[in-house]
């Protein structure tokens, strides 16, 4: 047994605090505790990437989701105004030729709450107790013709 070890045991038995080397002191500041290299810019950049990007990888979200998380990605369906006329024309054709229904109006609708966009197509519906069944039948047919287009469309009765 070494001499140092004996002194350490005696002090410990007498409940006397044993001085620790300076490197073992725990400063309350996290920055002071970290080595100088950690405070450098590359480390800050690394931390930023780790917290903001690598975290996302851990959650099984691909790089595409991170870099393409623009406004477009955040909405279910966004229709640009210049594209709307094309969509409107296509819808008009599909409704008239394939579904045999003449739409009364085709208008874009943006939710005032979450900004989600839909296209409202109004059509004349026979007066029934539950008109939604008729609406749903039409929407199902539209899905068979063009699924992507149907996703954006909500059908309402024209009065």
């Amino acid at each position: 047994m070494s001499k140092d070890r004996v002194i350490h045991d005696i002090l410990a038995d007498q409940d006397i605090e044993i001085a620790k080397p300076r490197s073992q002191f725990q400063s309350p500041s996290r920055l002071a505790r970290s080595p100088v290299v950690e405070r450098s810019y590359p480390y800050i950049l690394f931390n930023f990437l780790k917290n903001d990007f690598v975290f996302s990888f851990n959650r099984n979200i691909g790089i595409k989701d991170i870099f393409l998380s623009t406004r477009k990605e955040l909405t279910r369906a966004e229709i640009k105004l210049q594209d709307f006329n094309k969509v409107k024309q296509k819808l008009q054709e599909v409704f008239e030729k394939e579904l045999n229904v003449k739409p009364e109006s085709i208008e874009p609708h943006t939710s005032p709450e979450d900004g989600e966009q839909e296209i409202i197509v109004t059509i004349k519906i026979e007066a029934t107790e539950d008109p939604f069944r008729e609406i749903l039948k039409l929407h199902k047919k539209l899905r068979e013709i063009d699924w992507e287009l149907a996703k954006k469309v909500v059908i309402l009765p024209a009065e």
């Binding site: 008109p131 939604f132 309402l156 009765p157 009065e159």
Partner: peptide, 8 residues
């Protein structure tokens, strides 16, 4: 005036 919508 909008009976079908109100039926919904």
């Amino acid at each position: 005036k909008t009976p079908t919508t109100w039926n919904l």
